[in-house]
Amino acid sequence: MDQDLERLFEKMCDPNESDAYVFADKIGLKADEVAKNRLIELVNGEDWEIAYLSCRALSKTHWQEEALDVIFKVIFDRKNKKRQGAFVQILEEFDLSQRFVDVFKVYLFGNFKASTLAKDYLDQVEFDITPRTIRKAEKHWNHYLHNPEEPDSLAIKKAEVEPMLLEMKELFSE
């Protein structure tokens, strides 16, 4: 990795740096394969603030799909349950059009903040939906119905999800 990128990583990872996000953006714009791999390592690391900044940097690269795989893995990791919201929030920097099922799972199984943000994405993003996407979403919905993490929210989610799934099915029944 060149010295300029190394210096940017040092600045981004410095806990006293007030503009760390600026350095994250610069890393994302200059990232090569080595920098991408380092960013992915940091996303999986223990320091959630550096992980968040690394997600931000990855959003500026052309490795968005690979980055999204890693970010969703971090979101669904039980140890990050309290920090899910931050990782879901950074998803706004990515193209989510191919990620309906992942966002839907966050809506169903995420903590309050993560679920609320995921619902906003479900309402605002134009997803590429296929019959297979619908079947996968229904599978997760059925799992949720039998294992709700928040039984009190079951009625609310039922009122939101069932019409959504029905509307998507109708797209392919015509």
Rank of each mutant, 00 (worst) to 15 (best):
R7Q: 08
L39H: 00
K73V: 03
E170L: 14
H140F: 08
L122W: 05
K139G: 10
A51R: 00
K30G: 02
I75L: 01
G110Q: 11
K79M: 12
I90Q: 08
E92R: 14
F172Q: 06
A118F: 03
L53E: 06
F104M: 13
N80E: 00
V43N: 01
E10S: 05
K11R: 10
A57R: 05
I156V: 13
R99P: 06
A20Y: 07
V74A: 10
S59R: 04
D25F: 07
I71R: 02
L29R: 07
L117R: 02
P131L: 00
D123K: 11
M1G: 15
D120Y: 15
N147W: 09
V106T: 08
A31E: 04
D128Y: 15
H143E: 11
A159T: 07
M12I: 07
N80H: 09
P131G: 01
E6M: 10
W48A: 13
K157N: 04
A159P: 07
Q84E: 15
C55Q: 05
F87L: 13
E17F: 11
Y107H: 12
K119N: 07
K11V: 03
K11F: 04
V161R: 02
V70W: 03
E46W: 00
Q3W: 04
D32R: 04
F127I: 13
W48N: 04
F76V: 04
M168F: 04
E167G: 07
P163L: 09
T133M: 09
F172C: 08
A86T: 07
E174Q: 13
V106N: 08
E138N: 10
T130V: 14
N142Q: 10
H146T: 15
V43E: 00
R7L: 15
D128F: 15
E17Y: 09
Q64S: 03
Y52E: 11
D25C: 14
E41Q: 06
N147K: 06
N44L: 06
E17C: 11
A35F: 11
K158V: 06
A155W: 06
I156G: 01
I90M: 08
D69A: 12
N147C: 07
S153C: 03
E49L: 14
K11M: 14
M164V: 05
K139L: 14
A137W: 05
P151E: 07
D77L: 03
R135E: 11
E93M: 04
S59E: 00
I71A: 05
N111L: 05
W63C: 05
Q89H: 13
I71D: 09
F104T: 00
A159W: 01
A31F: 01
E92L: 09
D14M: 07
N147I: 12
M168I: 02
V106E: 04
P131S: 03
V70D: 06
D19R: 03
D19A: 05
Y21A: 15
H146Y: 09
L53N: 14
I75K: 02
M1S: 13
L122I: 08
V43D: 01
H140E: 11
V106F: 10
N37R: 14
E170S: 07
Y121S: 01
E126H: 14
V22R: 10
Q89T: 12
E6N: 09
E46C: 00
N37P: 03
Q89Y: 09
F104Y: 03
E162A: 02
Y52M: 04
S18P: 00
D2H: 15
G28W: 01
K60Q: 08
D4L: 12
M1F: 02
W63R: 00
